[in-house]
Computed example of a mutant assay.
Amino acid sequence: MEQLTRIEARLDSLGELSELTGALRSVAAARLREAQAALTGTRDYCAIVDRAIAEISPLAGAGRTERKAPAVLLAIGSEHGFVGGFNRRVVERALGERRPDERLVLVGRRAQIAAAERGIATGDDFPMTSREEGVTPLARRMARRLETAASARLVYAHASGGAGYEIALRQVLPLPKVAEDAAVRAQPPLHHLPPDELLDGLASEYLFAETAHALMESLAAENAARLQTMDAASRNIDKRLETLRRQARAARQEQTTADMLDVVTGAEAVNHG
């Protein structure tokens, strides 16, 4: 009886854990869809800013001031857990790509923990948003941090179909060179600001656009990883539940057999008494 009680208690606990896992899976799936839907907009905005820079760059002065601030390598992880090896992979890629002159900046508390476990100290880090609507304000703050950097690169995850993801590296500073064969309009673009001032404004917007797109990609990949982790956890819980149910049935049968033996033994004792 005591064994059956323990098994039933474990069944109750695993049942509650299964419900929690299902809820986390549903949230991850919903946020993955939100981020994927927003990616088209961030990708299109990057293309618009790239085109504007390509059109105004030939009009800007050649003697622009070089940036003197340190180079930055910015790695985007997750704020919350249940994502398997997501943050470990991001941090390992960042450490593998990091140049001696680059200052490492991490986005996401879990990525910061993963770096600390490897003895890597960072500073001026950012928390990672967990919702699509948090990407824009976070990207603005990050872009302002990058504006003074001599060079800047982003390490982030992007979903690669299904629940998979890959770790990407993208250079965002210095501004990309305008290709000689770029399809620039025959007529100069209409503008009301001096070309150098306009290009400076576009450079800031370029940093925002690229950072926002990387954040959205990472948010989608994070939830893809969480979905994958919850699927694996659900399968494991289901297997353990089935094992415990078999054990419970066997324990009940043993208890029934023991009760019947007690009855038979008692009856025999009465008959022989």
Rank of each mutant, 00 (worst) to 15 (best):
Q171R: 14
L154P: 04
E197A: 12
E205Y: 00
R246N: 07
G162M: 05
V178D: 07
E133W: 09
N236A: 14
A203P: 07
A209N: 12
R235E: 14
M216L: 10
R249D: 13
L190R: 10
T136C: 01
D200P: 01
T211H: 00
L227Q: 13
R153H: 11
H213Y: 06
M230D: 03
A220L: 09
S234Q: 12
A152C: 11
G201K: 05
N223R: 10
Q253M: 11
L219N: 11
A248Y: 02
E217I: 01
T129Y: 01
D238E: 14
A157S: 12
A157G: 12
L169I: 13
E197Q: 13
D200L: 06
S151P: 01
P176E: 12
D196N: 15
M230H: 03
T148I: 01
S151H: 08
Y206T: 03
E210K: 14
Q171P: 03
A183R: 15
A152M: 07
A179L: 11
A183F: 13
D231L: 07
A139C: 02
L198A: 05
V135Y: 02
Q228T: 06
Y165P: 00
T257G: 07
E133T: 09
L215P: 01
D231Q: 14
A212Y: 05
R141P: 01
D231R: 03
A159L: 07
G134N: 08
A183P: 08
L175F: 09
